[in-house]
Design a protein around this nucleic acid. Structure first.
Lengths: 239, 239
DNA sequence: TAGGTCATATGGTCCAACCACATCAACTAC
DNA sequence: GTAGTTGATGTGGTTGGACCATATGACCTA
């Protein structure tokens, strides 16, 4: 067993045993190294891995933001991992989109009608509607938050994390796609209308219709933008 | 920007640009450190992160297995990340199971009838049937492979990777659950029957029925074993 | 020709030192 | 007494160098 894995297991055991919880602090690197009888280098390698997985956050200096504290950001971990494997071209973008459709339509179908996240989603739609000449980047940022809020309304943390990571992993790709659109204004207008229809379906408790609308919404965007035009990925069935 | 992130970005850029592909080799740690004008420590931290994400594999010595070569194992990355966050108790096991049901029933519904993976799945069922007193551990290992083969038959790499990682993240949990079963022999027999029914439905092209059977299969197992008995997670709807 | 031996290159580990940063306590000037 | 300055302390961030374990291949030697 390599040394940094020993440290990794020790920390994971502390988490599982409850000796370490979100918000808690790891011992200082030097102290932990001495405690586990390993070098500080190995401790740091383990911490870096945990950091990449969204399990800890490190800060220099003193005070509340300093030291290595336990957090829990599964989306970050999944997102960077997916992005990396998309870069190796072993995860086709079309498969990412297809999976996103699958997860998001499920979430729309199972969103709880009274979920507070739906209020947030409505507010986001309002922000997207108000100014007519909202910048593209800002529109897309609000769009991301709307879709995440919708997913969160289903109350499944794993689905939410996976959805966010899928979105994150192809964020750069999606941004480039928008530049290929023939007429952004028309597209944005259509997206707005579809958003309202989706939210209305969810709020009326018509899960099946909400799922259909979400699937059509996502697939329509990527189809219009030309998914796979200059990418080895083949368009998926998406259903 | 921290030094190891610089290395990380450099490598990711090489992957995206196609200068580095699966099977290719990274420069030696010392050479890469000199090339990027950073310390070997920082290079190693970056490589460790990539290793944890299933993007590279490192080996000592000389020859084909030595050095740092690019691989692509998204399942490893997602699996360890999920396992870690399950340990922090921010991802309820019930949500994991629910998500697995969601993905796996989709895969069953969309499996291609002529997919070669179905032949593999059939062979695995044969192995599970043959000896009457197959050890529990071996049965479960075959079970894992059967479900993965089924998922692969749908042809979506992302769904396959996520399914595998979900399974992996709660492997320890599932293993413990089996020990809570009142009568393993009866359960195993039922699982066998259900497996055959699932595969038959897929092969006959009845995707909807296959999806239903898979959902009932997974939910039934966890329900029988007592999901959430001594866990903060609440049983999910699973549909 | 067969066998052993050494050079070489790889990653794995450790150590010691230094830097950058943020807080807090002690001190000083007013 | 208060306000500002200064230094001590503890944190992660980075570096260079040293040494080890391993695996291969070239080179000797019997």
């Amino acid at each position: 067993m390599r040394t940094h894995q020993l440290v990794l297991h020790w920390i994971e055991d502390q988490l599982s045993a409850g000796n370490l919880a979100v918000g808690g602090r790891l011992p200082a690197e030097r102290a932990l190294a001495e405690q586990l009888k390993v070098s500080r280098t190995s401790v740091r390698e383990a911490i870096r891995i945990l950091e990449a997985m969204g399990a800890v956050r490190s800060g220099v200096g003193s005070g509340p933001d300093a030291g290595t504290v336990v957090i829990s950001d599964p989306t970050a971990a999944l997102g960077s991992a997916l992005r990396l494997h998309v870069a190796t071209q072993h995860l086709p973008v079309a498969d990412i989109v297809q999976t996103r459709v699958l997860l998001e339509s499920w979430a729309a179908a199972h969103a709880r009608r009274g979920a507070p996240e739906l209020e947030e989603a409505a507010a986001l739609l309002g922000a997207m509607d108000a100014p007519e000449d909202i910048p593209v980047g800002e529109f897309l940022a609000l769009d991301v938050r709307f879709h995440l809020a919708l997913a969160n309304a289903a109350g499944n943390a794993v689905v939410s994390a996976m959805m966010g990571s899928l979105r994150e992993s192809i964020q750069g790709y999606a941004a480039e796609l928008t530049s290929h659109l023939p007429d952004w204004g028309t597209t944005a207008s259509r997206l707005r209308t579809e958003h309202h229809a989706i939210l209305a379906a969810v709020r009326s408790g018509d899960g099946a219709r909400a799922a259909e609308l979400v699937a059509a919404h996502i697939e329509g965007f990527y189809k219009e933008a030309g998914l796979g035009r200059d990418n080895p990925a083949q368009p998926g069935r998406g259903d």
